[in-house]
Nucleic acid binder design. Structure first.
Lengths: 252, 252
DNA sequence: TAGAAGATAGAACAGTGTTCGTTACTAAAA
DNA sequence: TTTTAGTAACGAACACTGTTCTATCTTCTA
């Protein structure tokens, strides 16, 4: 029972206490142990935390304590915090269902895919920051990209236009979701830095009309679009019919 | 010389050493003192740090040590780190020059304004994250917004379309700059997670062609657009002629 | 000249990501 | 069955972060 590896000290007080504690609860804990943590379990609890408390609350320690362990244990399954973030957005992208391309309704199809992405990003507030903090090169994100590419190419959109507009749409969905998360998520405490609409309108009306004539004249329009309208409007601009005409500058 | 305010302890060892040090260098430091720090000085050094080392390197302590002081001293002029970030992007927005609206070349004008924003954001790598982390309600950002609104409204774009497309363009410029910063900034160490173009093409070619047919067929187009082409392409989509036709859904 | 106000710091607190070294356990080899 | 190698788990610590409390110091005003 005495340790044999290194001669060292004759068992410290904490070690002795730990041995006693382990001896005291041998019933179910010995056999079933503690359900060893895996990448799936880590990602699931991480997503749970983000869904409930926002992306800012997601720290290694927070995940670790939720799994009843220390932060160092996570590094056996995940290289970085950044890698954890990447895996999370990969998991979200994996949930997006891709349609079989139908050239007659390509706009509806691709806007629907973007809507699914938005839905996932808004469900986990702030998580889209992880998308903007790293290069989106995971296989799951590439799968979504491939699906969008298929829709556009089958519809007859030139390859260069398709590639670039997909990139633009992905960036927009990400930034939109992030900004939208700020407005809704903070939730509990209402004295946040992000104001609600009526407050924003009043503040805009306080601006000097000679310096900001157009702003004060259109406060209503500037603050509109809390629902899907603004989102769909922008996507409608990006995925317009003008994409079909190959009007790109003269380069390969 | 003995402290009078509160009786307390009779001068600690560190205090004693500090007094000695202050007594040892009375020559020029007494008269010229230390050039008291102001918001301008703080913002200038902060921008300098971001320009040279990126936004991630911008911490309160980093700014403070650059000003030869402690972090607590900054809080007399700035409420938060967040407020510092806001002031920084405000300073960048203040540099944007706004044209007097000319309806005949409204697209050139507004794309130029977006290009100026991009220029500022790329000069200070990663700083656009500050834009996405808070509500853009400072007067300087509103000034830019007003300028863009003026260009569009004078051109005859409906108010609701103008407001929404400006929002979309601002989000896109921000996200684009942030992603572009990742690719270029890391600079020094080349073994970053962001790959250069040839590496990316090779990686894409390794994908299974049956699962990613369109991606592997168009690796060139997917990785193109390192210059201004991709940026201008997207803005061309957002600020297209179709904006003039008021094709918004039937709501106020 | 005395007092009040405000800027400047030092020290500390509660967090963060990450690594080191040591245990504890599992599963394959002798 | 016993031994051994490999690896997951984990406690403790390091170097950071933003922020606040307190005390000192400077400077302007009455």
């Amino acid at each position: 029972m005495a340790k044999r590896t290194t001669p060292g000290d004759p068992l410290s007080r904490e070690q002795w206490a730990a041995q006693i504690a382990a001896f005291e609860e041998p019933h179910g804990a010995r056999g079933a142990r503690k359900t060893p943590l895996s990448i799936e379990r880590i990602l699931d609890t991480a997503l749970q935390i983000v869904e409930g408390e926002g992306f800012d609350a997601l720290s290694m320690r927070r995940v670790a304590t939720a799994l009843q362990t220390g932060p160092a244990s996570l590094y056996a399954h995940v290289r970085n915090k950044g890698e954890l973030d990447d895996l999370l957005i990969g998991k979200l992208c994996a949930r997006v269902v891709l349609p079989t391309p139908d050239p007659r309704q390509w706009q509806r199809q691709i806007i629907d895919v973007c809507g699914q992405l938005r839905e996932q990003f808004l469900r986990y507030p702030g998580i889209s920051r992880a998308t903007l903090a790293t290069a989106p090169n995971s296989l799951d994100t590439l799968r979504v990209s491939e699906g969008m590419l298929a829709i556009l190419l089958c519809a007859g959109v030139p390859a260069q236009s398709a590639a670039w507009v997909i990139d633009a749409a992905y960036l927009y969905v990400t930034a939109y979701s992030l900004e939208s998360s700020l407005r809704n998520q903070p939730g509990p405490e209402l004295d946040n830095r992000v104001l609600d609409r009526s407050e924003t309108i009043e503040r805009l009306n306080m601006l000097p009309a000679n310096s900001f004539p157009y702003t004060v004249a259109h406060t209503h329009e500037l603050t509109a679009g809390e629902g899907n309208d603004r989102f769909n409007f922008t996507l409608g601009l990006l995925f317009s019919d003008s994409l079909m005409s190959t009007s790109l500058s003269n380069q390969p």
